[in-house]
């Protein structure tokens, strides 16, 4: 069985975001870019499923400009077998992204598509669910544990009320939450080896995907800033202040 994993190149999670003064977006020039942390966890999970003997091949894919090949190479260095780069300079929104992933899934027939639950740039949290819908596949979102048994996956999901377990038939879409695993560190020899792994480039047109209606971003602004308050010197001072405000 094959596993298809989607990864996205995003501004690194440690970067302090700067909104451009003209409101046209967030500054990304010269900013450190990385694989979306949730996607890294998805790659790791796919590798673990393969290492446990449940899958033969892990294919990673990304949709985006040339620079995204860096993230595909990282995934290959982690251990993925081959990569498919859907090359485009357009900004791809979740519904079109899901259509592209569906076209790839139709072509490659994976039993599992693993994605991060959200990208930390647009924070949409949509693509896995949309792919599930378009493929008429089951979805197991926000996964913190995945067990594969034959043609089913038993997935523990992080939900507001606690931990929910569902069982889904394969093929299925699974989206990774943070506690699913801790991604491995990539070693130098693996980076060298990854350079020789196959990477195929396709266009959205090659895949025959039609763009979905898009959400237009009219402007981007910095959020209202919370004012730093005061430092109190003692618990007594704190209690007095909170009592004055009627909070305790």
């Amino acid at each position: 069985m094959k596993i298809l994993v989607g990864v996205k190149r995003v501004v690194d999670y440690n970067v302090r975001i700067q909104v451009k003064p003209d409101g046209s977006g967030v500054a990304t020039d010269g900013v450190k870019m990385s694989m979306n942390p949730f996607d890294e966890i998805a790659v790791e999970e796919a590798l673990r499923i393969k290492e446990a003997g449940h899958a033969e091949e892990v294919i990673v894919t990304t949709i985006g400009p040339k620079a995204c090949q860096e993230q595909l190479r990282t995934a290959l260095a982690m251990g993925a077998d081959r990569a498919i780069h859907v090359l485009t300079d357009e900004e791809i929104q979740p519904l079109t992204g899901a259509r592209i992933l569906k076209a790839l899934a139709d072509k490659e027939s994976p039993k599992i598509v693993l994605l991060g639950k959200q990208a930390i740039d647009d924070d949409n949290n949509q693509t896995a669910q949309m792919l599930g819908a378009l493929s008429h596949w089951p979805q197991a979102t926000f996964a913190s544990e995945v067990k594969i048994e034959g043609e089913t996956a038993t997935v523990t999901r992080e939900v507001d009320a606690g931990l929910e377990t569902i069982s889904v038939n394969l093929p299925a879409v699974i989206s990774a939450d943070l506690r699913l695993n801790e991604p491995r560190y990539v070693k130098l020899p693996d980076i060298m080896k990854a350079k020789r792994k196959p990477m195929e480039t396709v266009s959205i047109e090659d895949l025959g995907v039609e763009h979905a209606a898009t959400v237009k971003v009219l402007k981007t602004a910095a959020p209202a800033k919370r004012q730093a308050g005061i430092k109190v010197e003692s618990v007594t001072e704190l209690v007095t202040a909170l009592k004055e405000k009627g909070l305790i």
Partner: peptide, 23 residues
């Protein structure tokens, strides 16, 4: 936009061919 709505609504949106506005 709780885990309930986050899980559910994109599935609805995609079937209807509509993008979703999250949060």
């Amino acid at each position: 936009s709780t885990t309930f709505g986050k899980d559910l609504m994109p599935r609805v949106a995609a079937h209807l061919g509509r993008p979703q506005i999250s949060d």
